[in-house]
């Protein structure tokens, strides 16, 4: 369980101290580069076993927010608790890192070891896992991301394809067996096939292995289908927090902060504007299937 209590963060704490009011922002959406506050008074609780989506326009503070979750960044004011422990303390933060795995954007850019094995083993070795368990740990991690352990273990990560590199980087975090997995745009820059596979992997981790997942994404379609709750950031403040159906209920409001609603819902909204109102299911219109059903229901109702 991760709890954010009134967390504000500034890149320039000295200047922020002079203007302690994390109040008004000037930019329309996103933060202007000189903006004092990257996060303003953020409070929420992430429950165990949850699939938590984070959305928001570029520069709204998403990446800064998740870097608070394993203590990489300490709040300028406010507190982050992981399992009830305040992680502003350096030692608490480094203990937390074994439990909270953070996969950065384009994680393949952080590969460095001369073999896939060593790269995946980097995390567990840092955590002090005994060397005799290493082969088993690495094998499992690579299997989880659908890579053939025997085929890739001795290869240089730089010889692999882009999609494979990303999976190795993923495996490097999974090898630490985190209970919470934070993914910053995991599918960015992948082709549609790679994207589908990666999201399927994330679903499997959450569904079968019970990992708590926090996922930042620009694809509202993915978030709406996968997430239990979505947190929307705007200019560093919590703009909305709730189930996808609640968050995307007001398409106009979403648009005003530079956020799209999922494509099927958008389709239904346009139809409604043209005078064809579809029945709105309680869970929202977030998949093509539910859209087809709604259209079919409307069509049948008409006859």
């Amino acid at each position: 369980m991760i709890e954010f209590r009134n967390v504000s963060y500034s890149y320039d704490p000295a200047a922020a101290a002079k203007a302690p009011d994390a109040g008004d922002a000037q930019a329309d959406w996103g933060n202007s580069p000189d903006e004092l506050w990257a996060l303003r008074d953020v409070s929420f609780t992430l429950n165990d076993g949850e699939f938590f989506g984070i959305a928001g326009h570029t520069g709204s503070g998403k990446s800064t927010l998740v870097q608070h979750m394993n203590g990489l960044v300490a709040p300028t004011s406010g507190t982050v608790f992981v399992d009830g422990v305040d992680i502003s303390d350096k030692h608490a933060a480094s203990r937390v890192r074994a439990n909270v795995g953070l996969v950065f954007q384009y994680p393949e850019h952080q590969l460095f070891a001369s073999s896939v094995f060593d790269d995946v083993a980097f995390g567990p070795r840092n955590m002090g896992c005994p060397e005799e368990d290493m082969e088993r740990i690495v094998r499992e991690a690579l299997q989880t991301v659908d890579l053939d352990f025997d085929a890739v273990r001795a290869r240089s990560p730089f010889e692999l394809s882009g999609g494979q590199q990303r999976r190795v980087a993923f495996a490097g975090v999974l090898a630490m067996h985190p209970r919470t997995l934070i993914l910053d745009e995991p599918a960015a820059g992948l082709d549609p096939e790679g994207r589908r596979e990666l999201l399927a992997l994330v679903r499997r981790l959450h569904g079968d292995m019970g990992v708590t997942v926090v996922m930042i994404s620009h694809s509202m379609d993915d978030l709406a289908v996968m997430a239990d709750r979505i947190l929307v950031l705007n200019q560093g403040s919590v703009w909305a927090l709730g189930a996808p159906a609640e968050v995307f209920a007001d398409a106009q409001a979403c648009k005003s902060i530079g956020l799209d609603v999922p494509a099927p819902q958008r389709f239904a909204n346009v139809l409604k504007e043209r005078g064809v109102a579809l029945p709105q299911p309680a869970g929202g219109l977030f998949t093509r299937e539910s859209l087809v059903e709604a259209i079919a229901a409307a069509y049948r109702g008409r006859r």
Binding site: R97, A98, P107, Q110, F112, G123, N126, M176
Partner: peptide
């Protein structure tokens, strides 16, 4: 990113500093 994976990034070669540094310099 490397800190997230528990890297100890120091210049001290006796505390695994060298592997920590290579995890920065190679990428």
């Amino acid at each position: 990113a490397q800190l997230s994976r528990g890297a100890k990034i120091t210049a001290n070669p006796f505390k695994g500093g060298l592997s920590g540094l290579s995890s920065l310099m190679v990428p």
